[in-house]
Every structure is written in C-alpha cells, then in structure tokens.
C-alpha cells in the first residue's frame, strides 16, 4: 500500500515538473515542447544532485512501463485521416522508410567510426 502511495506521489511530482515546463514555455514563448523543458529540468536536478533519484525513480518506472498506452488515443485519431493514404499519400510511407534507413546509416556509421577512432587514440 505504502509503495503505491509513493508511486502516486512521484507521478504527481512528474506532472508538476511537466506543468512547470509548460509554464516556462508560455512565459518565454519557446518553440520547445513543455515536456522537453520539464525533462531537462529533472535531468539537470538529478545530475547536480539537487533532487535525489529515489524520490522519483519508482514513479518514473511505473509511468514509463505503460508509455505506449498514452499515445493510443492519438493514434486512434488516424481514423479521421484515412483519405491521406489513398492515392498520392502512400508515397509518404516510402519517404519515411527511405529517410529512416538513411538516418540509421549515417548515425550508425558515424558513431561507430567515432568510437573506433577514440579507441585507437587510447591505444587499445
């Protein structure tokens, strides 16, 4: 029971950080999503040891365990855009496919090259 209370409170804290992020976004008219601002706030607070990990860890794990649930209501909205994929829109699927593979190739090759050249410099 205690464990659930802790998870519940920590989720409320996460919600609070998100709302702070949204508030900052509106206040400074930033193009960043409020959730990313909240993410950066929490990450910075954890790194600087301002906020201890154990005060947020179980809530975050619980919330992330069901991450894909939260965007299902949005993906269901695709039912209203069926006509996009009839006709020319089908090409968008091919575009996304090609673009995804280019992205994987570039980021995979560059990071592998960078890590190997770093290893060589270290002499290993």
């Amino acid at each position: 029971m205690m464990k659930f209370a802790i998870i519940f409170i920590q989720i409320i804290v996460l919600y609070g950080i998100y709302l702070i992020g949204e508030e900052i976004r509106t206040l400074f008219r930033l193009p960043l999503p409020g959730s990313i601002i909240g993410f950066l706030l929490l990450f910075t607070a954890l790194m600087l040891k301002i906020y201890p990990l154990r005060w947020i860890e179980s809530g975050a794990h619980f919330l992330l365990a069901f991450l894909s649930l939260y965007f299902i209501p949005a993906t269901v909205g695709a039912m209203e855009y069926g006509e996009v994929f009839t006709g020319k829109g089908v090409w968008l699927i091919a575009i996304v496919l090609v673009s995804t593979l280019i992205t994987m190739a570039v980021s995979g090759l560059l990071s592998q090259w960078a890590s190997r050249s770093a290893d060589q410099r270290r002499g290993s």
Binding site: Y15, G34, S35, I36, L41, L64, F66, L69, P73
Partner: peptide, 25 residues
C-alpha cells in the same frame, strides 16, 4: 471517444519528463 481518450493522453507530458530517470541512470 476522446472524451475518455484525453484522460489517457494527459500522461504523455509527464512520461516524457520521466525519461530523464533512465537517461540519468
């Protein structure tokens, strides 16, 4: 449908914030 769906969708923002925890670890 979104009358109920939006309740579930409202967890998206806090979930993005929560991604800071696995990255920190």
């Amino acid at each position: 449908y979104m009358l109920g769906g939006q309740w579930i969708g409202s967890f998206l923002g806090p979930a993005v914030v929560a991604l800071a925890v696995p990255l920190y670890k």
